[in-house]
Design a protein around this nucleic acid. Structure first.
Lengths: 121, 121
DNA sequence: CAGGATCCTTTACGATACTG
DNA sequence: CAGTATCGTAAAGGATCCTG
């Protein structure tokens, strides 16, 4: 493979940027952080619980996002042997490694976003 | 048997979840973290630099996302008095408060995502 | 160089209805 | 309850051309 000529301001460490892309690729869409945040607080939750708690999401979307995250091992789906059957979702151990990201997102939302309004008004 | 109103799943602290929603509302879309990450590393960058560095983005999207973030005071746009004119973008001080989030996203991308492949293969 | 305008295709998302 | 099916809108994404 050919080496890049190391020079100008466009010469940036791609590792970090690729890592950001990698992460966002599996967390894309407007719901995943929201769902994960809810699930991290709520522990095991059923479909309907999530539908109620994740504000504004439609069943189709929730279903799709959960399947998505299940595929990526972020979330676990368990069918309970009840009548009628219930299904429980929870964050996997692997999914918990996202906790720091979600913490920071929550902190920022509380801390800094409010600050902007104060500055501008 | 009486049903326990257990540690009711629906009884969740909304503050945190609303904060997540707030944050993601202004960082929605698949590009903003990517652009911000690039801009944080690259310092002042011109439109064309970003177009080259933000892998896969189209000019139209980049333009739109930058305007979006400019509106939200995350990014600053400066027109240089050159010929032909050049425009420089940089992260604002306020935008820098997102650094911790972006750091965590980058760290996760490097640290954990790789691990999953190893486990599964 | 920094973009906006246009056109067209493909996903993302949303509302409602329906099924095991 | 836990979803899927269906239909419709909106936004993303790509290609090409255009302008100050």
């Amino acid at each position: 493979m050919k080496k890049q000529p190391v020079v100008n301001n466009t010469n940036i460490c791609r590792t970090r940027i690729n890592a950001i892309k990698d992460t966002m690729d599996i967390l894309s869409g407007k719901w995943k952080f929201h769902i994960l945040g809810t699930l991290m607080q709520g522990g095991k939750m059923r479909f309907m619980d999530l539908l109620r708690e994740v504000d504004g999401i439609a069943a189709k979307m929730l279903s799709k996002e959960l399947q998505d995250m299940e595929m990526n091992k972020l979330v676990n789906r368990t069918i309970q042997n009840t009548k009628p059957i219930t299904v429980e979702y929870e964050v996997t151990e692997y999914g918990r490694t996202l906790e720091r990201i979600i913490d920071e997102i929550a902190i920022w939302g509380i801390e800094y976003r409010k600050g902007l309004y104060e500055k501008n008004s």
